[in-house]
């Protein structure tokens, strides 16, 4: 159970969140089971920002929802552990998990409009978290909500309290959701593609805001994205996910300077670059996730991989590395690009 409140709960250097061998399998009785997350392990240290990167469908959202206990109650099995502050979130009761969510661990989602309740004022949607976890009354929480809105850069926050989501712009909505997530000073924030639904210029603003906030408050963050460009500006450490498994891990600098997994290289090559000559074509990774091989007898990426060897379709490449750098590949790319 939880320790004394005053005592620092996390020792320096210890991971705040340690995910080990997380597996999520979908499928009801009679259906072919589908493993969306296949043995994922990673650490998040206090104050650190960790990226979870990969194409659509690679299991990023399912990973985060499993950690949050937000997967549908039926039709899936979750295995492994996710130890947060000394207790395994995956074995907590639904009620214990409710007490953690929004207080210790918060989450923001991709589409700010649909993620806000259309018939409730923004102010109330911010105060309800504080009412729930800090025992404040609505009246007590309201001025704090205005402060929060101000802190996330919403102009005229007092007036905004009474607004409904449809009266705000996309960027303002995402700012409001960030305010809700940070209302109870969580130690971990999971951001699932927080900028994907926004205009490019707004994306940069929101990312800058998130960066400022996590630095200022010391909140650890898991940044989920399909865009390595987002990672470059934000993450201390990056996990590249393919077909439900982590295929490469590295520090931001290491990974960008010397990507080793062919998939990571492919992702880097498909980032639009401002310094590239105009008209130079990006090189997207050929094929799609529909071509994946099953991980248990091959490298799932083999059909799309330019480096593939015979062994790649015969055996599962093993994870070689530790909690800071690592690789899952039989034939990594050369040391320099």
């Amino acid at each position: 159970m939880s320790t004394q409140p005053i005592q620092p709960a996390v020792r320096h250097g210890e991971p705040l969140l340690a995910v080990r061998d997380l597996r999520v399998t979908f499928g009801r009785r009679g259906e072919e089971p589908f493993r969306a997350v296949d043995g994922v392990s990673f650490d998040v240290r206090p104050g650190q920002t960790v990226g979870l990167v990969g194409e659509s469908g690679c299991g990023k959202s399912v990973t985060s929802l499993a950690i949050m206990g937000l997967l549908p109650t039926r039709g899936n099995t979750v295995e492994g552990t996710a130890v947060f502050d000394g207790e395994d979130l995956l074995s907590l009761s639904a009620q214990q998990m409710r007490d953690r969510r929004g207080a210790d661990i918060a989450m923001i989602f991709q589409d700010p409009l649909s993620s806000l309740n259309p018939v409730i004022q923004i102010g109330r949607q911010v105060t309800e978290v504080m009412e729930r976890h800090q025992g404040l009354s609505r009246k007590e929480a309201m001025p704090k909500a205005a402060e929060l809105l101000e802190r996330v850069g919403i102009p005229d926050p007092r007036a905004r309290l009474a607004n409904y989501p449809h009266q705000l712009s996309g960027g303002m909505r995402q700012r409001a959701l960030i305010a809700m997530a940070l209302a109870c000073q969580p130690r971990l924030l999971i951001a699932d593609e927080p900028t994907t639904a926004l205009d490019v210029t707004i994306q940069a603003q929101i990312l800058a805001l998130l960066k400022d906030l996590v630095v200022e408050t010391g909140t650890a963050m898991v940044m989920i994205t399909h865009d390595l460009g987002v990672v470059a500006g934000l993450c201390d450490e990056v996990n590249v996910l393919y077909g439900g498994k982590i295929v490469e891990r590295g520090t931001r600098h290491g990974l960008f300077a010397r990507p080793r997994h062919p998939y990571t290289v492919g992702l880097l090559d498909s980032i639009p670059r401002l310094d590239a000559p105009r008209g130079e074509a990006l090189s997207p990774i050929p094929g799609s996730v529909a071509d994946n091989l099953p991980w248990d007898s091959a490298c799932a990426f083999a059909p799309r991989c330019s480096n593939a060897l015979d062994v790649c379709v015969e055996k599962t490449p093993a994870w070689e590395g530790d909690d800071v750098v690592g690789l899952r590949c039989f034939n990594p790319m050369g040391v320099s690009r």
């Binding site: 949050m68 937000l70 998990m97 409710r98 007490d99 953690r100 969510r101 929004g102 207080a103 918060a106 989450m107 989602f109 649909s114 993620s115 806000l116 309740n117 259309p118 309800e128 978290v129 729930r132 976890h133 959701l177 809700m180 997530a181």
Partner: peptide, 10 residues
């Protein structure tokens, strides 16, 4: 938004 409400621990 129901998922958001769940994520808030309400």
């Amino acid at each position: 938004y129901v998922r958001t409400a769940e994520a808030k621990g309400l």
